[in-house]
Amino acid sequence: MPGRLFIFAAYDAGARVGASLLWYLRSLSACGDVVLEADTDFSAGELEKLGGFCLHAGAAAHGEYDFGSYKRAWQWARENLDTDAYDFVYLVNDSVFGPLRELEPCLERMEGLGCPAFGLVMHPSGHSPHLQSWFMGFGREVSVAAWFDAFLSSVERQESKEAVCEKYENGLTRLLTAHGVGFKGLFNLPGKSVYNSPLRLYRRGLPFVKKSSFTRHAGCLGRQLRLVLDSLPGPCRDAVLSDAARLYGADYVNSLLAAGRFTVACRYFRYLASKLRGRSA
């Protein structure tokens, strides 16, 4: 197995280390070393839960979103590890539930794409194609470069999440291009399909589902999510449901997942109606 370092950015609105995060870290730690920083004030007791899976776990609300956590975890790794010795360095965050299937084959497929930079998802936007920053990896050509270190070290607080995405997610892909670094995604997903098509993407082999799929479009993705969850091993399914209920409310999640085709259609039409009202206001 190649040497891998996972720079992990965590966040939890309730300042809890949930079952799904532990599931994720257990899977990652079987594939490489994990250094975690959270944009959350986890208590010492919560941080202790991470000790078996991470070389380091730090937590302090900083308001710089995931790239601020990437910066802090990378700085710790640079000061305490020989980061140049790793074959691959990954930037990974917990905006997803999973992995829903074994992770090692996906890592091997990404690492075999023949590019120094790669990700699970490539967004082929016409004006700004980019690797989605919730799971991306880099070979030594990138990870040992001074410009890569300078980029991560330069992260600062921005006025909005959208500004973070433009400056740092899109900006990192632009930086790769500026330095002549090729990049590919294992999945090329246009528009919002990574959020809106959890069942189709699970069947195609994507090993995660975005957390926001549970709340998008007035809950009309519930049937897709239920079919995904029904396909999972019990421990994974239980971890996802436990944190979904904690984050979004047990009654909401139960209603979301119980929806049949007719209810899903009604929810979608309500969502469309609200969008139209918003545009005409």
Rank of each mutant, 00 (worst) to 15 (best):
A61M: 11
L55F: 11
D39W: 05
D41E: 10
S27Q: 09
F53D: 10
L55M: 12
L55W: 00
S29M: 09
C54T: 02
G52C: 06
A60L: 10
S27F: 14
L36F: 10
D41Q: 11
V35S: 00
Y24Q: 15
A30C: 13
S27I: 15
G51L: 12
F67T: 09
W74E: 03
F53Q: 07
Y65F: 15
A61R: 07
L47W: 09
F42S: 01
G52A: 03
S69R: 05
H62T: 00
A73V: 08
A44E: 13
G68N: 08
F67L: 03
C54F: 09
V34I: 00
V35H: 08
E48V: 14
L36Q: 10
K49M: 07
W23T: 05
D33Y: 05
F67K: 07
G63T: 02
Y24D: 14
K49H: 10
D39I: 09
Y24I: 01
L25Q: 05
S43D: 13
K49R: 00
G32Q: 06
W74M: 05
L55Y: 09
E46K: 04
C31S: 06
L47V: 04
L50S: 04
E64M: 13
G68F: 13
T40I: 09
S43M: 15
G32K: 04
F53G: 10
E37C: 15
D33N: 11
G51C: 15
A61L: 15
V35D: 00
V35W: 01
K71T: 03
D41I: 14
W74G: 02
W74R: 02
A59V: 07
A57I: 08
E37W: 14
D41C: 11
S69T: 14
E37I: 11
R26T: 01
Y70D: 00
L28W: 02
H56Q: 10
G32S: 15
K49I: 01
L36D: 10
G58P: 10
